[in-house]
Each structure stands twice: as structure tokens, then as C-alpha cells.
Design a binder for these strands. Structure first.
Lengths: 358, 358
DNA sequence: GCTGCCCATCGAAATGTTTCGAAGTGGAGG
DNA sequence: CCTCCACTTCGAAACATTTCGATGGGCAGC
């Protein structure tokens, strides 16, 4: 009795159906009642079932073409995702995989057929900034198809491996930086409530403030999408208050840029009158006026790690952890300054990027 | 006893081995002796064994994948290219093509093997902002392999189809806009001399100035790469002159952003003290502070057109023209203002984007 | 209310595939 | 000539998947 792996038989017993039915659930056959399907999926998850490795030489493509990885993501014109894709493709090239652009993930909708993807001969799939708790991805991953998710909006309870950054610590870093510059009235332009990394960054914000014995003013915390326009909207509310903050920690660079622009429109100088710190260090941050101080995520590295994790899954190796987090670090540019702004415009602060601990 | 189909069990009995061994022969496993393998194959043939239909919706192995287009480009983290890729992939999806990310084009070096690409079974290839006069691309295209180049650095004398924008007209548009605001001392931060579209935009600049009977001051024309840092460098030279220009036409948005930042460092306000107009209308332009006035290239449309042209080539249709140009148009945002800057900072100009003719 | 039909659902059994260890083989070393 | 060891070859059993028929509930027709 080695019993090294849970089998369909056990799952079947646990959920009170036959082995055949469990198999059908796994393979998305239609002749299973919805209630039964759910019960079986629950049992599959509880028993931590994972598909047997169908031999490591599986991709079995015919000739010429290299094994292929499918990548799917919501948006092309997004500096964050593009940076991840950059790392991802370079690693794929190094490991001898082709990369094909998968189905477009539209908002909450992920419309693709897990069956088709499994049969298509792809060696694996990588999703970037999508909701990994959604059914198609769960279904795909739970059948043993190699799936890695980078910075999932939500993880849920799936088999798939996910990669992210230390969002909580990053939030702490950002606020500590502002505190060290003397700021006390620090707002947080957070991301959507529904997204997990928003929570982590917000928690970091709270934690750092409490650590500094500063009472948290919940009216200084706003929520918006991770977009420039979202940043514009929340900045309008924050800056037009009678008691505006002296510094804002934005949950991403795009939001930060929106805030910088709204400040400019009000003749509020950044960083002299208002410090703004972003998150991501996408290539937008280094090209703005002023260049953004930001908490950098190692986006290229996250992309590379995604490919390496995927190749492990493909090879059938057991991955030690289902979720990996890479360290963030502070990149100081010109959008933050000491409270009281001694500098004045054009103070010629160095462009050197100081790197702190995450 | 329906016995509609011969099974492995029968074959196994006939050839005197176990079912497992027959399965292995069928699946090309290595752990079967050559003599045994031959005996089993003979038996398989005699019994007219054929694989069971693995469900009717089985698309027969490799044929399942859609025809594939390879795309190659120099740089991921580049707003211009990403926008083109966006249009390109959406069109490919619509036309039923897969898109695979091809070899990375590094600077002047395009290291891929045209032979391998042709043999790989790709339906065609699209290159973005590469030098189409280089040997590998010429070689590929001249052998009849379908190739389309978007915004080639240089075209040379090849067979391949290229797609660009009306760069000359765009240059004229940009300068006419600045002239209409009253500017007379207009600099041009041009792109690299080696790149064809730089020439076209520069020629448009010259043409518009001559048209307005303004003498061209060649010291107001600088060259740099199409980068933010390039823009910073040339801006430093232009702005530190004793007689700085009142407006700059930058050959791309990245250069424009570099100029805006150098101006900020010198407390030169944009647009009150200096008007800056970019080129491309990549997503950087709409996210800067201030948002950039720019000459828009229809990047998405160019990507789509590239795919459509390629599908024509693949279908064997004769393409009427080897080079297509799409119209540019002016997008007015907040980085340009009338000479003499009536407005003052934060003048709350509308965000409306006025669209002019190219 | 009864009958018969349809159809969604499910499982037994047939079938194919993989794992893992047993058996065989050959050669180096004693 | 025997032993040991590494390697090849093979099959029993474990496992997964599919087929196809059984079951039973809903419902129209009578």
C-alpha cells in the first residue's frame, strides 16, 4: 500500500458516485448533473486530486515546431502586463518554448474552451492578471494541465501555481518612505476592492501607519480601477478637500500618474506641495514628469519565474509551493520630497535610484 | 457478441504477448524488443486493428492548430510597438490565425534562420519597426514566403509588403499646429538619421516652415534615438541655449516626454513657457503630465491592416501596392498653448481631443 | 390517473494506458 | 564457473476513459 497519489476511486467513494462520473467531471463531459458536478469537484479538491503525469514527453507535437506555451491576459496597452510578457517571452525563448498569444481575456469574462486548449497540443498555459478562481481556469488546471498565473486578481481554490509580489510589504515600504520624509497626512489611492493585491497593499498602508502610531483616517483611503482615469477621479476628491493630504500612496503607477496630472491642473506642485508614490515600476514610472518614486515589482523576473515554474509542471516535477512571492523594492525618483518642500522646482535631485529592502 | 472492432486483447492473443505490450507498440514506447515489436505490428496489421475513436470531436492531432503567423519586433516595453501588436492580434483572432512571438530582433541584428522559419509551417510573418533591408528578411520574402513589415526602419528593395503612416504629412500637421498658435521659433527633436520615417517627418517640418515663409534654423534640429533618454539629452541642449525655442516638435512621444521632464527641471512650464508636440499617440501620450498634444498614427489600424495584407499574400492574391500608408491626425491635449501663454498653470483647458486632417 | 415516450443522468463493463517490479541477459570481476 | 550488477524486456495490476445501456422523472396524450 504505497498510496502515493489520490485516485479517482477514492474521490468517487468520497462523493458517492462511480469512478466513471468523476472522470466525466474532470473531462467536462456534459452528462453530469450540475449538483453532482459540484459535489464531485468539492471532493476532488478536498482530496487534493491531481492528474497522473501522462509521461514527460507528452507534448508529442509532430516535428519541427517547438513545444508551445499559451499566454492570455486582459489588455495589451498596459505597461504592467507588457513588462511581465517581456520576461516571460525571453525565458520561454531560453527554455526552447514557443509562445502563442492566447484568447483575449475580457474583463470578468474568460471565454475559452479548456477542452480545446488541452487538445491543442500546448505544453502549458500562463495567465497574467486574471481571476484564477474563474471556472475555465480552474477546470483546466484541475485536470492536470500545466497552468501558471502571474499576479492573479483572485486565487480561489485551484491547483494552479501562482506568482506574485510581496504586496503587503510593498505597501509598508511605500508608506514608510513617506513617513521618513516627514509626512503624516498620507492618503491611499487603493485599487478595486475585489482584487486581492489591493487588500494586501492597503493592509501594508494600515500597518505602517499604526506602527508609526498615526491614527488611520479612513476618508483618506479611496478605491478605483488600476487606471489613469481612476487616479484622476480619486485625486479630484482628495485634492479638493479642505484638508488635503500631503502625500499619496497610489496602488499602481497609472493611478499615480492620474493623481500627478490632477495636481498639475490645480497648480499643486509634485513633489514640493504633494508627494506621490506609485507601485509597479512599469516603464510609465520612469517616463513621467516628474519621474515617479515607486515600489518596484520585479516584473521581468516574475515573467521568467512563471515560465520556469511552468516547465517544471510540464516535466511533471512536484512544485513545492503553489504560490510564490517575489520581493518588491523602493525606487526613489522625483515625485516624493520631504514635507515642507525645501527643494523648490528644479531642485536637481539626482536621478540615482536608491534601492531599499522589501 | 457484437464484436464491431478488433481489440488489443485479440491482437495480444494472436501475437502471444500481453495487452500492455501491444499498447506500448502502438504508442512507440521504447521498452519493446525489436523482434517483438515487429511480431505485434504484423498481428495488428493482420487483425486490421484501428484505434478507437476518442470521441467524435477529436480534431486529429496536429491538424487541430490554426494557421500561424509569426511576429517579430525589437522591444517589448515600447508603447508604439505594443499598440501595433494589439491591433495585429485582434485582427489575427478575427481571421482565425494564431500568433506566435518570433525571434527577438536585437538592435541592428536580426538573428533568425529564414530557412527554419519557412520550414516551420508558419503561414506568414509580420515584422514591426525593423530594418526590412536586412538580409534575413529579404531572403525570406524573396523566396515567396508571405512577409509584411509595419513601419520599417528602412525598406530597401525587397518583395515584402510594408505598412506605414503618412509621416511627411504628419510632420506638416504638427508644425502647422504650432504655427497656428503663434509660434515662430520651432525646434525639431528628430529621430535617428538612419531611419526613413525620421527623414519624412523632418521633411514635413521643413516644408511647413517654408510654407509659412520662416527661415529654417538648422541648429534647432537635433537627432536622437526614439527614446525618453534621447529626448532628455537633446532637450538639455535646446533649452540651455541663450535663445531657446518656444515650441518643440518631437519625432515621437517618448522624445517629447523627455523634453517635458527636462523643462520641468528648469522650471520651464509646459505648455505656458514651452509647447511640446509629440508623434505616435501611443498610450504614453494620454498619461503624461500634462497630457501630450501629438500627431496620432492609427497604430491599431496599422496592425489590423498588416494582418489583412498578410492573409492576402497567403491566399496568393496579388497585392496592388507594396507599400501602404495610413493617415495621421492631430490630437490636441494640454502640452501646446498659444505663444505668450495667456493661460497660466492649471488653466483647465478641456480634455476634448480635436481631430484634424492628416 | 394511467401509459408511453423522451431525455437527462449515471454506472458497469469494455477498453486503452501507465506504473512498477519481475524476469531475463550479458559482461566484468573474482 | 560463479556472482554481481546494470540494463533490457515484459506483463500484472492499477488506473483513466469511453461506450452503451439502465434508470427514473417529467410530461403529453388519452
Amino acid at each position: 500500500m504505497k498510496q502515493v497519489r489520490t485516485t479517482l476511486a477514492e474521490v468517487a467513494a468520497a462523493s458517492g458516485v462511480s469512478i466513471a462520473t468523476v472522470s466525466k467531471v474532470l473531462n467536462d463531459h456534459t452528462d453530469v448533473a450540475e449538483t453532482t458536478r459540484r459535489r464531485v469537484q468539492q471532493a476532488l479538491h478536498d482530496a487534493d486530486y491531481r492528474a497522473p503525469r501522462r509521461s514527460s514527453r507528452r507534448p508529442e507535437r509532430v516535428a519541427s515546431t517547438e513545444p508551445t506555451i499559451e499566454v492570455a491576459f486582459p489588455e495589451w496597452q498596459n505597461a504592467y502586463e507588457v513588462a511581465v510578457l517581456d520576461g516571460l517571452t525571453s525565458a520561454a525563448e531560453a527554455e526552447g518554448y514557443e509562445v502563442v498569444i492566447g484568447p483575449r481575456v475580457r474583463g470578468e469574462q474568460i471565454d475559452f474552451d479548456p477542452q480545446a486548449l488541452r487538445r491543442s497540443g500546448r505544453a502549458g498555459a500562463i495567465f497574467v492578471t486574471v481571476d484564477a478562481s474563474r471556472d475555465p481556469i480552474k477546470a483546466l488546471s484541475d485536470t492536470g494541465f500545466p497552468v501558471v498565473v502571474v499576479d492573479p486578481v483572485r486565487v480561489g481554490r485551484t491547483q494552479c501555481v501562482s506568482i506574485g509580489a510581496t504586496n503587503f510589504t510593498g505597501g509598508v515600504t511605500a508608506v514608510e518612505h513617506l513617513l521618513s520624509l516627514g509626512h503624516r497626512r498620507i492618503a491611499h489611492a487603493a485599487g478595486p476592492v475585489s482584487v486581492e493585491c489591493s487588500h494586501a497593499r492597503l493592509a501594508g498602508y494600515h500597518s505602517a501607519l499604526r506602527q508609526a502610531a498615526i491614527e488611520v483616517d479612513d476618508t483618506l483611503v479611496t478605491h478605483s480601477l488600476f487606471t489613469y482615469d481612476g487616479g484622476r477621479a480619486v485625486a479630484a476628491r482628495l485634492l479638493d478637500r479642505p484638508d488635503p493630504p500631503t502625500a499619496v500612496f497610489a496602488a499602481c503607477d497609472e493611478i499615480a500618474l492620474g493623481i500627478v496630472e490632477e495636481a498639475r491642473r490645480r497648480s499643486i506642485r509634485v513633489p514640493e506641495d504633494l508627494s506621490v508614490i506609485g507601485f509597479d515600476d512599469s516603464f510609465l514610472a520612469s517616463r513621467s514628469a516628474p519621474p515617479l518614486t515607486t515600489v518596484a515589482q520585479p516584473l521581468l523576473e516574475m515573467g521568467r519565474l512563471a515560465v520556469r515554474s511552468l516547465t517544471q509542471l510540464i516535466a511533471g516535477d512536484v512544485v513545492a509551493t503553489r504560490h510564490l512571492e517575489l520581493a518588491t523594492h523602493l525606487v526613489v525618483r522625483d515625485s516624493t520630497a520631504p514635507l515642507g518642500g525645501s527643494g523648490g522646482v528644479g531642485a536637481q535631485r539626482g536621478v540615482r535610484e536608491s534601492v531599499g529592502r522589501s
